[in-house]
């Protein structure tokens, strides 16, 4: 037997034996009771269980930021967060950002400054930016760049993303 087949066998998973858990997620203000596999990530719970597909999966390894959501107001990578960790916590996603059909100022600023192209990283960028404003990390362009660097934009819209965040931060300061 070759080395490769031994590795493949050793990697056999123990599927289905971890049990299910009951989790109450409060997403954008609404409670959702879920009975899910204990290993389900917050990202998969949002997308597959709650059909909230605005939150994107770009790597599933915590490296790209596309899945950024807020949990109790702090930005987290939902692909590296188990849904079970979020029981009875406040989860905010892109779908909850606009109210009464009116876009959030950051959404408007991203639109105006063309802070995206394909749009796939955009929900994560915007959720990160929402947190950034609260974190007070918008003092300079360099600071915005640094603290937005967990969110990859492969289309390369970074200068426009910085411009959008800068504008909203300044409006807020007035």
């Amino acid at each position: 037997m070759s080395q490769d087949s031994r590795n493949a066998r050793a990697a056999q998973p123990a599927a289905g034996d971890a049990g299910t858990v009951r989790v109450t997620l409060t997403v954008n203000g609404a409670d959702h009771e879920l009975l899910i596999d204990s290993r389900v990530t917050l990202l998969d719970a949002l997308r597959d269980e709650l059909a909230l597909t605005g939150t994107k999966k770009g790597c599933d390894q915590g490296a790209c930021g596309a899945c950024t959501v807020l949990v109790d107001g702090r930005r987290v990578l939902s692909c590296l967060t188990l849904a079970a960790q979020c029981d009875r916590r406040q989860v905010a996603t892109i779908e909850g950002l606009s109210s009464d059909g009116r876009l959030h100022p950051l959404q408007e600023a991203f639109l105006r400054h063309d802070g995206f192209q394909c749009g796939y990283c955009t929900p994560g960028q915007i959720m990160s930016a929402v947190a950034l404003l609260h974190e007070g990390r918008t003092g300079s362009d360099d600071e915005i760049r640094e603290f937005m660097s967990g969110n990859i934009c492969r289309c390369g819209a970074y200068p426009n993303i910085v411009a959008a965040i800068r504008e909203v931060a300044r409006q807020g300061a007035r």
Partner: peptide, 17 residues
């Protein structure tokens, strides 16, 4: 502005995934 922008900033543009 991008005409598909409002959908994209709202997370409402449906990619194949």
């Amino acid at each position: 502005d991008r005409v598909d922008g409002p959908l994209k900033v709202a997370g409402a543009a449906a990619y194949s995934s």
